[in-house]
Design a protein around this nucleic acid. Structure first.
Lengths: 168, 168
DNA sequence: TATTGTTATACTCTATAACTATA
DNA sequence: TATAGTTATAGAGTATAACAATA
């Protein structure tokens, strides 16, 4: 029923997948520590990251991009505003909306995080042959794409009847 | 647009690293959803996972393995005990300690999670050429190892003088 | 004196629901 | 009527600190 390809033996999938989970855990931990060293959290650093890439943004857009509730965005921004990393200003045309921007300090923090980030990349991949790195990149790309596909609704309906209704 | 083999100057590290972070995020999300479907959380599922692998374990050992405080373990186990996944029993020789074991239900839950896990591995890696999978596995192994090394104290002493003393 | 697990307290991230101001 | 952001409330994960029972 399974046996997609691989032979009678044991597919290496579980082993690789386990490494993948391990990676997620240890990479998450690295992010937590790295951000904590500057008085941030992973969630707040993600906000700064998007503001750096997208420029001034409404809270609504942040809510969509981060996939969290508007209320959650309010909380994250309250923290980041209190720590001086972002400012809130009125939207020029829509008086309901708020534009969030990086402060100087917020920009400086992102720059430092980017620096560490690049150093980390170099340390992690240094010495890897080009061919391996290409293959790694290809497979990684596929895995991320498939995960996103599965997450976007096609995913693991293992027990559909038990799932709570979400289509109200 | 991409140019994987980009020029002498710019290593493709940042691009791959960005994918890696993306993977960590989306894989974490998949774990959150997958566990939530059975009334669990990622942290609680991790507890069940270790109990499955290690057998009955003291809370102290769980605290060490999970890298969280003993207080945190208490909270996680309170939840898992309330939901019927684990039991606490007195340690046979050390009357201070508590042995945590999986219940039948806890074991069944782990088995189901393992099943999904394997199906996920197949779906993610199906169609990947053996050579690519080997290279992927090799690089992934190295990356995880290096991350763990960096996390274990050798990591990013960006500003050593600012670090609080920990050797009191 | 050191260790195991607990209570007490607090902070962050997350969510839903109800509400205000605007569109 | 619909949208942007807020207050109110709640739950989970995490942490430190103080404490009890035991080693």
């Amino acid at each position: 029923m399974k046996s997609l390809h691989n032979a009678p033996g044991a597919p290496p999938f579980p082993e690789v997948l386990e490494r993948l989970f391990e990676l997620a855990a240890v990479l998450g931990g690295a992010m937590d520590r790295g951000t904590a060293e500057r008085g941030l959290t992973r969630a707040r650093a993600t906000v700064l990251w998007y503001l750096h890439r997208e420029g001034p943004t409404t809270q609504r857009a942040l809510s969509d991009i981060l996939r969290v509730t508007p209320r959650n965005v309010t909380g994250l921004l309250d923290g980041l505003q209190g720590s001086g990393h972002v400012t809130r200003s009125p939207h020029p045309t829509d008086r309901r909306a708020t534009l969030v921007s990086l402060t100087e300090q917020g920009q400086a923090t992102v720059n430092r995080l980017r620096g560490e980030y690049q150093g980390l990349g170099a340390r992690l991949f240094d010495g890897v042959p080009d061919g391996d790195l290409d293959a790694f990149s290809r497979v990684l790309h596929q895995v991320v794409d498939r995960l996103q596909y599965l997450a976007s609704g096609a995913g693991t309906p293992v027990d559909d009847s038990a799932a709570p209704r979400t289509d109200t």
